[in-house]
Computed example of a mutant assay.
Amino acid sequence: MRRIRRDATKVWHNPELHTAYGRGQPNSAGLPRPTQTGEDRRAAKQHRAALEALFSPRKEPEAEDGKGGRAKSGRDAASKAPGRIVLAPPPQSDPKAVERQRLLSKLLCASGRPNISKAANEFLRAGHTFPAEQDVYLQLLEHSDEQRIQEAIDELSGILVAELPKRRAVLESRLRRIEEFAEEPATREAAERLRRQVSGR
């Protein structure tokens, strides 16, 4: 069985530590506060000055100009000078290219046979040629002129050799409609060939 120590716990107090807040008041041990001599104060001031010099931010030396004043360094002068925003000149846009893009966008956004036919005819009347893109010729499959439809089928046949169809379902449904309702047998045959090429049958 362990023995329980009944002696009171002894606490050692450091006489150099004092808890009194007022000057000249005795500390908790009853001893007077230690007094600083002149040498101690001078050493403390020197120590504090050395620490402040060590940790204070450095300032660049200012060079004196010829007028007796201090000239600002290049970095300070550059940082205090107001910045100027220079805008790039607007690109020189070709009005013909802008018009071509506008008409092409109109064709691609058109819906319905009359609107698509009108947009395509405007594009051609302006002297432009259709770009070799699937979306353009997919729209031209809805043209009211069968000659334009045959041209679109021929172009799509060449494009789809190197590319996969982007909108296969739309392409197949338009080709089936051309097969059923086209007046020219050549147009119906071309639509059937392209549909088989797309479907792989």
Rank of each mutant, 00 (worst) to 15 (best):
G200R: 08
A63L: 15
K72V: 09
S105W: 05
H47Y: 11
S173F: 06
Q197E: 09
Q134K: 06
R201S: 14
L54G: 06
L160N: 03
A71R: 11
S173N: 11
R102W: 03
R113T: 11
A44W: 07
R100P: 06
R148L: 02
G158M: 08
L141W: 02
E133V: 13
P131A: 11
P34F: 03
R41V: 15
E99V: 08
P26N: 06
E180T: 15
S56V: 13
L138H: 03
R201F: 10
G30S: 09
R177P: 01
A49D: 14
A77Y: 08
S105T: 13
F55D: 03
L51R: 12
D145W: 04
L141S: 04
A50D: 13
P61I: 14
C109H: 07
S93V: 15
V11Y: 00
R177H: 12
Q147I: 14
A44G: 10
G69W: 00
S173K: 11
D94A: 09
F130E: 07
G158W: 08
V161I: 11
L17W: 05
H47K: 11
K72G: 05
A97F: 04
V86L: 04
R100F: 07
E189Q: 10
A97L: 14
V170A: 13
A186Y: 06
E189F: 08
I159S: 00
K45F: 14
E39T: 14
R148N: 07
Q36P: 03
P114T: 06
T35G: 03
G69I: 04
R177A: 11
D65A: 10
R58I: 15
A49K: 14
R201P: 13
G112Y: 04
A110G: 02
A126H: 02
R102M: 09
Q197K: 12
T129F: 03
A50T: 14
Q25H: 10
V11R: 00
S173M: 10
A186C: 02
K45T: 14
A182Q: 05
P89M: 06
I149R: 02
V11A: 00
A110Q: 01
R176V: 13
A119C: 07
E62C: 06
R6G: 08
Q197D: 12
A119G: 08
A49L: 12
R23P: 06
S73A: 08
